[in-house]
Design a protein around this nucleic acid. Structure first.
Lengths: 245, 245
DNA sequence: CCTAACTGGGTACGGTGTATGCAGTCGCAA
DNA sequence: TTGCGACTGCATACACCGTACCCAGTTAGG
């Protein structure tokens, strides 16, 4: 890891003197996202991006001081920004938020783990957070209450999509080979009779549909959230701020 | 990735002929877990483990055909197994499950991302799944309903812990440096006045306590789950199996 | 006892992120 | 107009990674 005097978003993209840069952070990130979407995040290497751009690997370091900064820019560009206005129906708004987020994460299968494991502060992400918190605003909630709900939804969607993608990752022919390898092991285990629920689970897994699973989880989540919001609304505001944390 | 005729759990540990092995899968995994816990998962390399064991890197490949299998064994050993009997109070049982899982994930900060991103089938993990599903058993739920609830809790705990760890990762002096780097950027953003909620969030973040955030999220989640379970209990069983999926 | 099957482990290959250095290009001050 | 300093693209090089290949030494079964 090189020294890094300040965050990538504070670094000016263009400088005063010298020849005009041939590339840009966004262009590099776009290429990297293309590779990651098509071949997985591990296929993204500096040399590979450079080849795709027709240049040398070290050129990229004129734009991004370290690979971690490449990830930072990739993440923010992949997240993007999609506006959403509150409709007054919090449940519907949160459901829309969840589905939109899921769509984004599924478009870029490498994205969810990154969002889960780093503090993300890119401009698109921050604008998105502001937009999402606004969905919960205007009803006298303490900011911490809003954050609890917001984080609950975001966190769950992220985890649910990771689980979806993990299950479906060995796709096509690979999936068949995977079952071939796994089959005997599971058969051996289930034959012991010590895993009745697992047995039922494996049978049912054949019919599991990701969309349905997501909607079921979301419904349960929203039930809890709406109950919580109703409970808070039933309390007077000063008492809420006190007791909620 | 080398060829891999079958899953690691099906490979016999000892063989008939030849000298007795000097190490074992579990011993190697234990060393690897020690390194990962202390210095992060990226510090775990074959050469590093071998050095810790006082041997050569290639020796490890006598026990584990590839690094992915090392991860597999590490995960299962780190997860371990802790028994839990149903008490009859589903809410309390699920809360206990969630807290136990959180404890496990926090003991091994590298663990949560692994659990989120792979299908995990180690013996400890499978025994744990069986144990957790049993908490929901005996009340006429369809297996898919049980899985929805189980996955909801597991997924959320996993995501919540990842978020906790991501926030607290720059610890101690690093955290201060991080704030030094981040401060000007955030100040600049907030000065635009376009991020009122973010501003409130950053103020409040000073007082955020991870335990409290976890318990708040868990409470909301359990509210939703109990409502869902009550709704199912109010339906007759055959209709439930039909309508639930 | 011999031989086959195993063991530990050295060497080597192709990959990675990135530090360093160098030649060419441009904007600005004199 | 000239030159200088700040920038550019980029080749080379280094340390580290996972792991394929090889070989010598050890041991149990026929």
């Amino acid at each position: 890891m090189p020294e890094q005097e300040s965050i990538i978003w504070m670094r000016p993209e263009k400088s005063a003197h010298g020849p005009a840069p041939a590339y840009s952070r966004d262009r590099i990130a776009a290429v990297a996202i293309g590779i990651a979407d098509a071949e997985g995040i591990d296929a993204v290497s500096m040399r590979r991006i450079a080849k795709e751009l027709g240049t040398g690997a070290m050129t990229l370091y004129r734009y991004l001081p370290a690979k971690e900064d490449l990830y930072t820019v990739m993440i923010d560009q992949a997240v993007g920004f999609e506006p959403q206005e509150p409709t007054g129906d919090v449940g519907a708004d949160l459901a829309a938020l969840a589905r939109r987020h899921r769509r984004t994460l599924r478009r870029h299968p490498w994205l969810a783990p990154f969002l889960a494991s780093r503090p993300i502060m890119g401009p698109n992400v921050l604008r998105g957070t502001e937009r999402d918190l606004a969905l919960l605003g205007g009803r006298g909630l303490h900011i911490n209450e809003m954050l609890d709900v917001f984080n609950l939804v975001r966190t769950w969607v992220n985890g649910a999509v990771q689980a979806e993608l993990a299950d479906s990752d060995p796709s096509g022919a690979d999936r068949l080979a995977w079952q071939k390898r796994m089959g005997p092991y599971l058969t051996t285990l289930l034959a012991t009779g010590e895993f009745p629920y697992l047995g039922r689970m494996i049978e049912a897994a054949e019919f599991g549909d990701a969309d349905e699973r997501f909607e079921n989880g979301l419904a349960i989540l929203l039930t809890g959230i709406e109950a919580r919001l109703a409970a808070i609304a039933g309390t007077d505001v000063s008492a809420t701020a006190e007791s909620s944390r």
